[in-house]
């Protein structure tokens, strides 16, 4: 990686306990296991995978909305996991989040002005008229008219609400945005508006971003690099052209082939996908993907391949591509 990283993550892990009772031990779900990656200054890393792969948990761990169990998160030279109290609040000024559901992510009883002013007041960044000026500036920045300020979220469409959510993340002038499926709840014709807005804001403010999505098309468009997760682990990570045009991991290939393309030539190429996504509570041994893998070797059921750097920043966890990559 050429530019210096703004965020680097090493060996991050998060377990959840589910079920259990008075006499029954709760089951452990390894939501994120040994995740390591970097995000370069002004870059956008995509995090893709199917439901239950741990991508949302990982995103929330970065902001400590979910407390990770192990690993290191270094943001702008600061060890995020060791922060508490005022230091953690200062971190949250520099790292913000955009949520998936534009209906659930805004408090229905607060006006747009209240929603946008609150962070400024809490962090003591503006008082009195300066607050209104900054709220107005934030609205203009995301393309909403100034008369939006006194209105309530339910008066807006999904796309407009997502703009409000983005404005709220931006009022604190963060350096880094974690976007969790920011367009997947929107209509197709509105998605592009929001994607363009995010693009413009990234450019203007020099933002770096972690972009979580299940939609490979959107990720291809928005991101510079992509990490693919399967059952809590990053199985492949590479620059966008490599992931989409030269995927190495059999799971990335399956995901890529199954992603629909608006082109009728795809008509008869429905991929034959094997098997179901296993439960994260009871992941298969060895490489977690081996039961569905069309090219699984005997050793894939027994050993787990480590994430190995091949060339040009293309990392993959698969014995087919790095036979020596035993853990």
């Amino acid at each position: 990686m050429s530019a210096k990283p703004i965020l680097s993550v090493e060996g991050l892990g998060k377990r959840f306990e589910v079920g259990g009772g008075l006499l029954r031990r709760p089951a452990q779900v390894h939501a994120v296991v040994d995740a390591s990656f970097e995000v370069a200054e002004r870059a956008c890393l995509g995090l893709v995978g199917e439901s239950g792969c741990g991508k949302s948990t990982l995103a929330r761990c970065l902001l400590r909305l979910v407390e990770p169990d192990e690993g290191r998160i270094v943001f702008e030279g600061e060890d995020v996991r060791s922060l508490d109290g005022p230091a953690l609040r200062r971190l949250r000024r520099r790292m913000q989040m955009v949520f998936q559901d534009p209906y659930a992510s805004l408090n229905p009883r607060r006006t747009v002005r209240q929603t946008l002013a609150e962070p400024l007041v809490v962090h003591g960044l503006a008082t009195g008229e300066a607050v209104d000026a900054r709220v107005e500036a934030a609205l203009a920045e995301v393309g909403l008219p100034p008369d939006s300020a006194p209105r309530f979220p339910h008066e807006f469409s999904g796309g407009q609400r997502q703009r409000i959510g983005i404005a709220r993340a931006l009022v604190l002038e963060p350096r880094f945005i974690v976007a969790d499926e920011p367009v997947s709840a929107l209509d197709v014709s509105v998605q592009a508006q929001v994607l363009k807005l995010l693009e413009a804001l990234r450019e203007r403010h020099g933002l770096s971003m972690l972009f979580v999505s299940h939609d490979l098309g959107v990720v291809r468009h928005v991101c510079d690099r992509v990490a693919v997760m399967y059952l809590g682990r990053v199985v492949e990570e590479a620059p966008v052209p490599d992931i989409f045009d030269r995927p190495l991991h059999p799971y990335t290939r399956m995901l890529r082939a199954a992603s629909p393309v608006p082109d009728a030539r795809a008509r008869f190429s429905l991929p034959r996908v094997e098997g179901e996504i296993p439960s994260a509570m009871d992941p298969p041994g060895g490489c977690a993907f081996h039961p569905r893998c069309p090219s699984a070797l005997a050793r894939c059921a027994k050993e787990r391949p480590a994430l190995a750097d091949l060339r040009g920043g293309h990392r993959v966890a698969c014995f087919l591509h790095s036979p020596e990559a035993a853990p």
């Binding site: 014709s189 592009a192 508006q193 363009k196 098309g217 959107v218 291809r220 393309v261 608006p262």
Partner: peptide, 17 residues
């Protein structure tokens, strides 16, 4: 169609509706 990001190729700039 012009506003859809695609997984199979780089579309350059999206044209939102």
């Amino acid at each position: 169609l012009a506003s859809m990001p695609r997984v199979d190729r780089d579309v350059g700039a999206l044209e939102p509706i």
